[in-house]
Amino acid sequence: MNGHRIMVIDDENIVGKMIKAVLVKDGYIVETFLNAEPALARLQEEKFDLIITDLKMKNIDGMDVLRTVKSQSPEIKVIMITAFASLDAAIEAMRGKVDDFFPKPVKIKDLKKCISRLLGESP
């Protein structure tokens, strides 16, 4: 249907799997990663339209991913998800020019709507 490439980075295996299962059905091409290093390496090889990343991760966290991506390819949209739904985390993510922010538990319908909006698809 649309063929947009989406990357999901979350150290919780199920998050990636479920998001991928739902989005693939809608025609997205989805790749999942359990941590940021291989994900950032993959970005050098392949162009992605949108990245969904967890905030709190080992070594490189979601904020590092956001900064790296926005400095290299600002056109890539970034959605942050986190179990830490604190105001501080949201403000910091906004400052890092995150495109949207989802606290856990994530509503998949809302996430899908957000992805469509960010990628400029007609609803």
């Binding site: 919780e12 199920i14 479920m18 299962a21 739902v22 059905k25 179990a83 856990k104 538990p105």
Partner: peptide, 22 residues
């Protein structure tokens, strides 16, 4: 406790939503 429980709860929630969706 909130953080420790937050992750599995989110996983269950996502499985449930995906299950319904798919």
């Amino acid at each position: 406790v909130a953080h420790e429980l937050g992750n599995p709860l989110n996983n269950i929630s996502m499985i449930a939503q995906a299950y319904a969706e798919l």
